[in-house]
Design a protein around this nucleic acid. Structure first.
Lengths: 346, 346
DNA sequence: GTGAAAGCGCTAACAA
DNA sequence: TTGTTAGCGCTTTCAC
């Protein structure tokens, strides 16, 4: 019986990218593709001569590697996704994101920023889109609220770092600080400085609410009266601070201190107070949150809670890199703490 | 002669991703991979019954598509990269980026944000990293300065939109406004309102410098004296505005108007003026740039140049989507213009 | 409408 | 060291 000769199929017609491939570079350099690949990824294991020839071919051809293909083959994308709720609001995240980007870049990874918005469903969709791209790690600024999202993340088996928040049940790794302690410390701060009727102006987001809880509970222990709270929708603006103070004063004319969930709100409070002839800090003490770049430049200068976003970002990126590169991460939770910066406003 | 029997090689050992693949979904649904693929990407061409079976299998297995593989095979990544110089500085970009993200998401594309920093070499490196990921389009906020970068972009054959600037030689598509005209309009604005000794406080970046040029040239035509300029390094802050005014007043004590390259600077000028007992707008008119969210909330409210970042972002994203989807882009350059918002400060 | 299989460009196992 | 080649998981021909 004659052997079944496989039918020779015509070569499939496929539209190709058109750009230079590693194979072409290899041919130019007169080496095998694998050698060219090694020359680019592990130059130290290639003989100097061939290395040189490959590098020449690369620069002559203008070759740009296709990381989609590389990632698929190696199962490593060299991409670390960072999800932020917004880039509009609290400029507080900015230095953190910058630090993440820089630290990752230094380690040979690329940061990919995704903006989730404040809607849970959007966040889930973004998460799915991101996981589809098989990043080597994911950094979340703020917790993922939906259980669906958390499950997806856990299932993906990708290193995850949550930031800004010290939640009791992290998905994987965590770097942040205790919002409750910030609130408690602020209440003590006011109390120590003689305030007897403090209030709160705060964005209606979960982290700010945690700080409020810390504040009110401590205030109670210190024997302060019920704390009036004015909530405002994010993003926090100077305007919201102004109207917040108006509303708080209506509820409570003898207000003598305000804790704000952002420096923008605090600045708004100061401006509104000045307009009304209320002396800050004489009659009203104001403490903000974030130590944004203007806090030391306005008049009066703003007392505020300072968080080191850079430290958070750097640590988060390190966590991811360590995990990717197989180094053991002993302590999965890092508390970076905070400090209250005393300036003129309170 | 007996046919050469190809030696049966042992199956290669390869570490695999471990996650569910389309092949497994297909097997679960009892269909071919190609059918499963079609069910996900072109549901309308698959029979309702098989479609249902595939969808069931997807949800039962928790399948997450691998877009690296998909992108490699289809030569379309569904990724649009957006490069921003920074996310710290002018919050002006924020609404633009948000609009880009939203518009792309609505069209089924994902926005990937890259932060370039202000260093050219960093920008080039980022560009290379991004092109390696084969995005379907690239949106640049601000021009790419290095010729190397421009060449790379052109060579990549990826749709490119430049934004914020109306340069004479766009790489591809462009949406922005004329910074020179902004400067000219500001000079005219001051002149019309009676200023006789205007000055400029401005960041030392190319766009702000273009506005300065427009300002000084128009001022000259209007017969105004030489314009004193104080330059400051980005990012623009309230503090920089304050010291800027101090320095300008030293050079030129009879200053009666200041154009600032950002609202932060303008607010700093207002604060410094108040500290010195200079009346704004009585003795000093101040105009900012950006119409940031606080401009209407501070006291006095800030006159400023307003750019609609949302329009820019939406248009940029539309450009990209149209191009990707093969719709003809007739007009590759869009001027979105600007307006001067008159408020209390000038 | 469905299935088989040939790639996409690259990495890595294996052989030499 | 270097070369050969089998995949990575998917899309898209091509054939039925």
């Amino acid at each position: 019986m004659s052997p079944v000769k496989p039918k020779r199929r015509a070569r499939r017609e496929r539209k190709v990218s058109g750009s230079i491939t590693l194979a072409e570079v290899a041919k130019m350099a007169g080496v095998a593709v694998s050698t060219a690949s090694r020359a680019l990824n592990n130059p130290e294991i290639v003989s100097p001569e061939l290395l040189q020839r490959v590098q020449d071919a690369v620069s002559r051809s203008g070759y740009v590697p296709n990381l989609l293909a590389g990632g698929l083959a190696s199962n490593r994308s060299r991409l670390v996704a960072t999800i932020v709720p917004t880039i509009v609001g609290p400029a507080l995240f900015s230095s953190c994101i910058q630090a993440i980007t820089d630290t990752l870049a230094a380690g040979g990874y690329q940061a990919m920023l995704g903006v989730s918005g404040y809607v849970d469903s959007r966040e889930d969709a973004l998460l799915a889109a991101i996981i589809s791209r098989r990043p080597d790690g994911i950094i979340l600024t703020g917790i993922v609220h939906s259980p669906e999202g958390r499950r997806r993340l856990a299932a993906a088996g990708i290193p995850v770092v949550e930031t800004w928040d010290l939640t009791p049940t992290p998905i994987d790794m965590l770097v942040g600080f205790s919002h409750e302690k910030v609130g408690a410390a602020t209440a003590e701060y006011f109390h120590k400085r003689g305030a007897r009727r403090p209030g709160i102006i705060s964005a209606n987001d979960s982290r700010a609410l945690q700080r409020n809880r810390g504040f009110t509970e401590t205030a109670k222990k210190l024997g302060l009266p019920e704390i009036p709270i004015h909530l405002t929708l994010p993003p926090t603006t100077i305007g919201a601070g102004r109207s917040g103070l108006r509303s708080l004063l209506e509820q409570c004319p003898d207000l003598d201190a305000v804790a704000c969930s952002s420096d923008y709100l605090a600045l708004g409070v100061v401006i509104e107070a000045q307009q009304r002839g209320i002396k800050v800090p004489g009659q009203l003490a104001v403490v903000g949150f974030g130590d944004l770049n203007f806090a030391a430049d306005v008049h009066p200068t703003l007392s505020t809670v300072r968080i080191d976003g850079e430290v958070i970002g750097t640590q988060a990126a390190r966590f991811i890199i360590d995990r990717i590169e197989g180094r053991p991460v002993l302590n999965r939770v890092v508390d970076v703490g905070f400090s209250i910066v005393t300036r003129e406003s309170g």
